[in-house]
Design a protein around this nucleic acid. Structure first.
Lengths: 190, 190
DNA sequence: TGAAAATTTGAACAACAAGTCAGATTTTAA
DNA sequence: TTAAAATCTGACTTGTTGTTCAAATTTTCA
């Protein structure tokens, strides 16, 4: 990717995450990057195209990360552990991307629909693992839909956790261990 | 509240949830309600004021619902069970309100900050209950922050669950039972 | 009834934002 | 060196949006 295009891409990602898609103007993007409006329109055909480009790049990264780590694992609980850990890592590493996704999935407009579909695909993938685990008797017999959505929601709450702690850096391993203790293993003492 | 004002309030709530704050124009609100622009500005001083009003009304409802139900319970796990159940009910009953909140808490602008603060307050409340439960030995010894944020994230995932099921009505009790089985009790078979 | 108060109207305004384009500048490569 | 291709510029166009306000209509109640 071109240097200028990359800068526009990165600045847009940052501003969309901070202020939202609508509240971020083309002018602000170009001013931040330090180029003229026309330059942006030389690299992207519209504001919407920047957004789409950005989401697709993010999704690519996410899918790669996950496929690599889960394929080799056998036990379903281990897979779920791995997914939770990866997702926390992704939330930290691609925070702006995840922020954009999480702020966009709630509406009914086309842009929201697109983001939703990606999230659904992702949850679907978790669901398959859960289903498999239930069949094998490795995971308690509950609704895989609920568990899969729940895993997604629970791990996304790490972002909320981070925001609550005034954006100090998250210790990924500690957070993961806490989630393991409180969620994956059990909440109530036996 | 005035009949016209209420209609503007409800329509705004619906449209903000569906299309987002910025993408919803005053024209669209008034056209949907069936009044002239001036009427809206007779009842509200600005678009921002509609939003603030709407959030405050929602928060009021939410706080009332929760205080009523948790105060009389003794055991911490029971309290958490109650909170989860209430929150699912609220998610279903005040879906538009929760949608607005969830789409707004990720940014850094003043409007996001306001919504965030309400959510933090709410999670704080859960955290206190969790802390209490840990001290009493009723809840496993993990980071109360993580658990509290997690409970919030997990229950909010019910909205995602609903979206994934093409918005068919949620059976609150079933969903609650599933969350109890998969999250509150334990995920892994012993 | 009638006049004051409350409510509604919609045209007009100012601000702003997305997108365009003809020309300037820089890079490429023969 | 030089001319074509690629990249960049920023004033301009076009459309939209939040907000205002003087006048019209409806409601209140003495």
């Amino acid at each position: 990717m071109n240097k200028t295009k990359r800068k526009i891409f990165e600045t847009s990602m940052k501003l969309f995450a901070e202020k939202g898609y609508d509240a971020t103007s083309i002018e602000e993007i170009t001013a931040t990057v330090g180029v003229a409006k026309g330059t942006l329109y030389y690299h992207f055909s519209s504001k919407e195209e920047i957004f789409n480009f950005l989401i697709e790049e993010g999704v690519k990264l996410l899918k790669n990360s996950i496929a690599i780590k889960t394929d080799k694992l056998e036990n379903s609980i281990d897979k779920i552990r791995a997914i939770v850990l990866i997702q926390i890592k992704i939330l930290v590493k691609y925070e702006n991307f995840m922020t954009i996704i999480l702020s966009q999935i709630w509406g009914t407009d086309p842009r929201s629909q697109m983001c939703k579909n990606y999230v659904f695909e992702y949850i679907q993938m978790i669901e398959e693992i859960v289903k498999d685990g239930i069949e094998k008797g490795e995971i308690v017999d509950a609704d895989p839909n609920v568990i899969a959505s729940g895993i997604f929601g629970f791990t996304c709450s790490s972002l909320i956790y981070k925001m609550r702690h005034h954006d100090e850096e998250i210790d990924v391993m500690t957070l993961d261990r806490e989630i393991e203790k409180s969620f994956i293993r059990k909440l109530k003492k036996i």
